[in-house]
Amino acid sequence: MRPKSKVDLFAAIRRDSRTEGLSIRALARKYDVHRRTVREALSSAWPTPRRKPPPRSSRLAPFKPAVDQMLKADLDAPRKQRHTVKRIYDRLVDEFGMEGISYALVRDYVARRRPQIRMEEGRGPSQVFIPQSHRPGVEAEVDFGDVYVKLAGVMTKCSLFTFRLSYSGKAVHRIFASEGQEAFFEGHVHAFRVLGGVPVGNVRYDNLSSAVAQVLGFTRARVETERWTAFHSHFVHVPVSSRSVPTLVMASATS
Rank of each mutant, 00 (worst) to 15 (best):
S210N: 11
L208D: 13
Y205V: 04
F184G: 01
N207Y: 04
A211K: 03
T219G: 13
H190N: 11
V189D: 14
N207V: 05
L216M: 13
S209N: 12
A213K: 10
R227Q: 10
E224K: 12
W228T: 04
R227D: 09
A191H: 05
A211D: 06
R227Y: 01
A191V: 04
V200H: 08
T225S: 05
F192R: 00
G196A: 01
V203E: 08
A211N: 08
R222Y: 05
E226T: 15
L216H: 13
T219W: 05
V198Y: 02
G187D: 00
T219C: 00
G187L: 02
L208R: 09
L208K: 06
D206F: 07
G201Y: 08
G197Q: 00
R193V: 08
R193W: 11
N202K: 15
A191N: 05
A213L: 15
A191F: 03
V203I: 15
A211E: 12
H188W: 06
R227W: 02
N202C: 12
F184D: 02
R204L: 15
L195Y: 04
L195W: 07
R204D: 13
F218S: 15
L208Q: 06
V200Q: 09
V212F: 06
F185D: 03
V215R: 15
L195E: 02
G197R: 03
V212K: 03
L216T: 10
H190D: 10
S210C: 12
F192Q: 01
S209C: 12
F185K: 01
L195V: 01
R220T: 09
N202P: 02
G201E: 10
F184C: 03
G187P: 05
S210W: 01
S209R: 15
V223A: 08
Q214G: 00
Q214S: 08
R220V: 10
E186T: 08
H188K: 03
N202T: 13
R220L: 11
V194K: 07
V194G: 01
G196Y: 00
R222N: 14
A221V: 03
R220P: 08
A213N: 11
V194Q: 09
E224Q: 11
N202S: 12
T225E: 02
N202I: 14
P199T: 01
R193N: 15
R227P: 00
Q214C: 08
R222A: 09
P199I: 00
V198K: 07
T219H: 10
P199A: 00
L208T: 04
F185T: 02
A221M: 06
F184M: 01
T225R: 12
H190S: 09
F192E: 01
V223S: 06
N207W: 07
G201C: 11
R204W: 14
V223L: 14
G201V: 09
E186N: 11
P199R: 00
F192M: 02
V194F: 07
E186G: 04
A211H: 09
E186P: 02
T219E: 13
F218K: 15
E226I: 12
